[in-house]
């Protein structure tokens, strides 16, 4: 099969991108995805080396294997990009996300929300007599599950950071 046209399987990949932390760098990354019609499921960014002004961006994207290969090649071409690693294919990795979840309820529902939060090993960051703000970390699936459980218990707001990912083992990216 030398030509891409038949529908291909859609894969989900997490990429780590090391970039110079300069004006416009995020726009270049996002512009690449929007300009070519690729998906961004989540994107996180923060400076990780203050001396060298390097930021690490973690992007979760979906696409056919050919599109994933394109995304990696196109990201690598961006001038302020130092390195791109496809965490999904590079080996075992840890993917974590942090969420802040606000729930407003009283009585049995409030007790149930609190109980579930303990079961998910969440922390309570804020409370009033009628509400909680829970802090949860974990893989995105765990947070999805918790959010679904909170929905009938008075879910008000969810803030999620998106995925941060890193390879397991001693090696750097």
């Amino acid at each position: 099969m030398s030509v891409m046209q038949k529908p291909e399987t859609i894969e989900r990949h997490t990429m780590a991108v090391l970039v110079d932390n300069e004006s416009g760098v995020l726009a270049r990354i996002i512009g690449l995805f929007s300009g070519r019609g690729y998906n961004i499921e989540s994107l996180t960014v923060a400076e990780v080396d203050h001396n060298e002004h390097l930021s690490r961006i973690t992007i979760v994207t979906t696409g056919s294997p050919m599109v994933i290969e394109q995304i990696k090649a196109l990201l690598s071409k961006i001038v302020p990009v130092h390195k791109v690693v496809d965490i999904t294919v590079a080996g075992p990795s840890v993917e974590r996300e942090l969420a802040l979840i606000k729930v407003r309820s009283t009585g049995e529902k409030r007790v149930e929300a609190l109980r579930l939060n303990e079961a998910f090993r969440g922390r309570i960051m804020d409370t009033t007599l009628e509400s909680f703000v829970f802090e949860l970390t974990g893989d995105p699936g765990k947070i999805d599950a918790f959010v679904e459980l909170m929905r009938p218990l008075g879910l008000v707001d969810v803030a999620r950071t998106g995925v941060a990912a890193i390879a397991r083992g001693p090696e750097g990216m």
Binding site: M1, S2, V3, M4, M66, E69, Q70, A73, L74, K77
Partner: peptide, 8 residues
């Protein structure tokens, strides 16, 4: 990014 873009 030109390689394997449309033709494998």
């Amino acid at each position: 990014s030109s390689i394997n873009k449309t033709v494998r």
